[in-house]
Each structure stands twice: as structure tokens, then as C-alpha cells.
């Protein structure tokens, strides 16, 4: 559990980061909280010749809520999210999800940016961001680009971010309606066996809109447009929830691991989504 030798950088600004990235190409990696990257380096599964620590780069640790938009800097930790009252009021699903990530010690270090940028299918934030229809802000040699969270993930650890780009922030519209983040895990600190993020807007007695995303049930997070659509216009009764679950099951593609075989994961995904929908609907 000793990483191979690497060069360590701690630039003060983004220009410094970008110049190191430009110089070393894919031999360099940026690091936020380090909770995914450092274990991979220790296992010598990630070979990083040049490690750029973002801790001293300013301007990425803020949470801004203005009008209908929420912007969260990439270096904001999961603990910051849990601890931020205005954010919890504006988007309570963020706090509900963050409380289910790892354990307090990890949450003090683990960042939103690292969680979404790494592309680990086990991470909770990517699915959550897809549910919230968030936008990812990337800075590179050509300036700032934005990518929708729902378009960002290509495969495990493969994303739309280029090697010379840094993810600096996520932004999203202030969510309306009821919410739920439901996660089954084996123990504290574990990745999800199955997790579901649900946002449902109620109009009278029917569902006006619904957004559903699943975590750790494919090699990417799964935004299930069809599952949301199955609820819209219904009273979110048993049949509608059943249809949403069936639609979601068509979108996921779990693999067998120590958490269990595929049939189990599909079954649990259905149960978890059902619970998420029921809780979100009860809050809508």
C-alpha cells in the first residue's frame, strides 16, 4: 500500500494548475479530497507521475444561492453541504444524500468536485446531480465549458472531461417539489448496493414532473427519463410506481459483485426506488 514515486504540486491559482496539466498531459492528475485517487495510487492501480493538489486554489469552496440557481464549488466538502443551512433549505436532497456518503471523517475531506469528476459508478453525487439536472463547469486551456450532468458520464471512470480540463463547480436550478435519496448499503462507508434519487412535483393530486436517477447499478449513474415519465400525470398510485420501477429496470445494467448477484440487485433497485418515490411523493 505504498504508491510509486510522484511529483507533488500545490499551485495557488487555476492558471498554475492548467500550466502543469498542459505540460504533463495525462501523466498529471488533479486531486481534490483524494479519497478515490490516493487509494488507487497506493494500490498502484493508478499511475500518476504528477499530482496537483487543489487545496490552495481559491474560488472553488463557495456555495452560492442566488435567485433560482445554486452553484457549488468543486472543493466544497460533503460535510460543508451537510452543514450549510441555506443550502439544506434550498435543496434538502443534497443534505439527505450527503449524510449517506461514507462516514464523517471521509465527509470532512471528500469533495463534490472529486465525487462527480472521478466517474466512479459507486459514488452517490453523480446520480444525484443527474436527478437535479445539474450542470458541470469545466475550465481548460480554451476557457470555460459546461456539460450537463446527464451527458457527462460515458463509462466507469470515463467522462466528458478532457485531460487538460478541471471541473471547478456544479450548478443547478433550485429543485421544487418533494425529494428523497434512498440508499441500501452493507455498512457505514460502503458504496450503494442500490440507491435512488427522486424529485417529484405535485400539482393538485397528480404528478406534474418527476426526475429519477440510480446509483451503482451500471458502469455509470443512470438517469431514467422513462421512470420519471411513468409518474407524470398519475396520482403516483401502485400501478404508476410499478410502471416507474419497470421502466427503471429497463435502464439499469448491474453486475455481480460481493454485494450480490444481478437478480438481487435488480430486486433491491426496485424496492429502493419504490421507497424513494413514496417518500418524495409524501413530501411533494
Amino acid at each position: 500500500m505504498i504508491p510509486a514515486a510522484f511529483e507533488y504540486y500545490r499551485p495557488k491559482d487555476m492558471a498554475g494548475v492548467l500550466s502543469i496539466l498542459e505540460e504533463h498531459g495525462d501523466d498529471a492528475r488533479v486531486m481534490a479530497g483524494g479519497h478515490s485517487l490516493i487509494p488507487m495510487m497506493k494500490l498502484r492501480m493508478a499511475d500518476v507521475g504528477h499530482l496537483i493538489d487543489l487545496q490552495d486554489v481559491e474560488g472553488m469552496s463557495e456555495i452560492d444561492i442566488s435567485g433560482n440557481t445554486i452553484r457549488i464549488g468543486a472543493m466544497v466538502t460533503q460535510h460543508d453541504i451537510i452543514d450549510h443551512h441555506a443550502l439544506s433549505a434550498a435543496a434538502p436532497i443534497l443534505r439527505e444524500a450527503a449524510l449517506q456518503i461514507a462516514d464523517p471523517q471521509v465527509r470532512y475531506m471528500g469533495t463534490v468536485g472529486g465525487n462527480v469528476a472521478n466517474g466512479d459508478p459507486g459514488n452517490d453525487m453523480p446520480g444525484l446531480m443527474q436527478c437535479l439536472d445539474a450542470t458541470f463547469h469545466l475550465t481548460g486551456p480554451d476557457g470555460e465549458h459546461t456539460v450537463a450532468a446527464r451527458d457527462f458520464y460515458e463509462a466507469a471512470y470515463m467522462t466528458a472531461r478532457e485531460d487538460d480540463q478541471v471541473l471547478t463547480a456544479v450548478s443547478m436550478p433550485k429543485p421544487a417539489g418533494g425529494h428523497a435519496y434512498e440508499k441500501q448499503k452493507r455498512k457505514i462507508g460502503d458504496y450503494a448496493t442500490a440507491a435512488a434519487a427522486a424529485l417529484i412535483v405535485k400539482d393538485g393530486f397528480t404528478c406534474a414532473s418527476a426526475s429519477i436517477a440510480m446509483t451503482n447499478l451500471s458502469d455509470t449513474p443512470v438517469y431514467s427519463e422513462a421512470a420519471g415519465a411513468a409518474l407524470v400525470g398519475t396520482s403516483v398510485d401502485d400501478a404508476a410506481v410499478g410502471a416507474a420501477v419497470a421502466a427503471m429496470l429497463g435502464d439499469i445494467d448491474p453486475t455481480e459483485d460481493n454485494r450480490g448477484p444481478i437478480a438481487f440487485k435488480k430486486h433491491v433497485a426496485g424496492v429502493i426506488l419504490r421507497r424513494a418515490i413514496e417518500r418524495a411523493w409524501s413530501r411533494a
Partner: peptide, 16 residues
């Protein structure tokens, strides 16, 4: 008796 094995027991007993 982890989650999936308990689930499997219930499944084999026809409880799903």
C-alpha cells in the same frame, strides 16, 4: 447472513 443471502433465502421460500 448478508443482505443478498437473506434475500435469496426469502426468494427461494417464495416470499417475493
Amino acid at each position: 447472513h448478508d443482505h443478498w443471502r437473506i434475500w435469496k433465502t426469502a426468494n427461494e421460500l417464495g416470499l417475493h
